[in-house]
Amino acid sequence: MPDGTAFLDTPGAEPPLPLPPAARKGRGAGLNPPNRFERSAREAFDDGWGTLEAAFADLPPLPTTLTKDHAKSALAWNESPDIGFDRAVNPYRGCEHGCVYCYARPSHAYLGLSPGLDFETRLLFKPDVAALLEKELRRPGYVARPIALGSNTDPYQPVERTLQLTRAVLEVLDRFDHPVTIVTKSAGVLRDIDILRRMAERNLVRVCLSVTTLDARLARIMEPRAAAPERRLAAIRHLSETGIPAAVLAAPMIPGVNDSELETILERAAGAGATSAGYVLLRLPLEIKQLFEDWLARHMPDRAARVLSLIRQTRGGALYDSRFGVRQKGTGAYADLLAQRFAVAARRLGLERRGGGTGALDCSRFQVPQAAGGATQLALF
């Protein structure tokens, strides 16, 4: 396992971390806010004797712990009208990449954990995810539509190098001729290029690399354990040259932080071979508001107020609007301008062409392969 990674047998084996006043080295969040479902919360305070300063001085790096998630299902279903898929597989819960803005952070509260540092240090993994998926695909009446791999957390986060759960899922989908879309911030997707190449030949896969910024310094503080921007662009190039459809997702666009890079990100991705593109405006549901405000205060104190003001201009005066249809794009003049900029750039670069969406993948090939052990008597008729 990666250095500093440990295993736990069951969720909730140890209490949540106290609320630290500063970020840990190599981690994105600077806080570990209380679980919103708990009736009580703990908060650090200074008793006047300097004990708080001493307790949090020179905090050691936080290790990553892994807990087995004994899930009963591999497929997660959704009916959201503004999401382009209705089913997904997430081999992991929590994500070590540590992106401070990650919209999935609040989901960690359902596990009794904090959406802050817990989300990026206390991960759950599904050891039986591939077997569960195969069982579900074999169910009578199952109708194939593209599966989104990693819709909640990144399927190629660092622990995947050892656990290889994402690869096991791809092997199942390959055998079943089942279409899949992948979204990742990791060049680790290239490890599975042998499977992806086979699936691409049957029009069964599309890989989307999320590129938030081209500024390596900014990337290190926004998404500390994700692949460097240049490595993601190199991954797009390698996928494209291998015949695997590659897309770029400029997300999230944060007003006053990285939104000025939108056109450049699209240009570099198109030059690397991307054939389609998308973008998403920063989303700050639930605890992410607090985490993001703390991050701004620590890393960009000179423009924190301006950034928050711009965000409110795209959210009707609030920091977030959760309504379907507007939550990913925002409203108002600033959001409209961002949408127009994307449309113009995508059209100019040929990134708006048809064929980039999940609907372009071939669902007609899906077939249930013969189960291990040979043909059944029924299969002979």
Rank of each mutant, 00 (worst) to 15 (best):
P2D: 15
T10R: 14
E14A: 14
P15A: 12
P21V: 12
K25Y: 08
G26H: 04
A29G: 01
G30V: 09
G30H: 01
N32L: 02
N32A: 06
P33S: 07
P33M: 04
P34D: 07
N35I: 11
E38R: 07
E43F: 14
G48A: 02
G50F: 02
D58S: 14
P63G: 12
T64S: 05
D69K: 00
K72S: 13
S73Y: 05
A76K: 08
A76S: 13
S80V: 07
D82P: 09
I83Y: 10
N90Y: 01
P91R: 04
Y92G: 04
G94Q: 03
G94E: 07
C99H: 02
C99M: 08
V100M: 05
V100Y: 03
Y101T: 02
Y103G: 05
A104C: 10
L113S: 11
L124I: 05
L132V: 09
L133W: 04
K135R: 15
L137T: 11
G141S: 13
G141Y: 09
Y142M: 12
V143C: 07
R145H: 13
A148I: 02
Y156M: 06
E160L: 06
Q164F: 06
A168D: 14
V169W: 01
R175N: 10
D177K: 03
A187W: 00
D192R: 01
D194Y: 01
D194W: 02
L196Q: 09
R197S: 14
R197T: 15
E201T: 11
C208P: 00
L214E: 13
R217S: 13
A219G: 08
I221V: 15
A226E: 03
P229T: 03
A234H: 00
A235K: 00
R237D: 13
L239T: 08
I244P: 00
I244E: 05
I244A: 07
P245R: 00
A247R: 00
A250I: 01
A251T: 11
M253E: 10
V257W: 03
N258A: 10
N258I: 01
D259W: 09
S260A: 14
L266M: 07
R268L: 08
A269R: 00
A272V: 03
G273L: 04
A274M: 03
T275F: 04
A277Y: 02
V280E: 13
V280L: 14
L284I: 08
P285C: 10
L286H: 12
I288D: 12
Q290E: 15
Q290D: 13
D294T: 04
W295R: 00
P301R: 05
D302V: 09
D302T: 15
D302C: 02
A305D: 15
A305E: 15
V307L: 06
I311W: 05
I311Q: 12
G316K: 04
G317V: 08
A318H: 13
L319Y: 08
D321V: 09
G325P: 04
V326Y: 02
G330M: 05
G330E: 07
T331R: 07
Q340Y: 09
R341K: 06
R341M: 10
F342Q: 06
F342C: 11
A345W: 01
A345K: 00
R353C: 05
T358D: 13
A360S: 15
F366S: 10
V368L: 10
P369C: 09
P369R: 03
Q370S: 11
G374P: 04
L378G: 05
L380C: 11
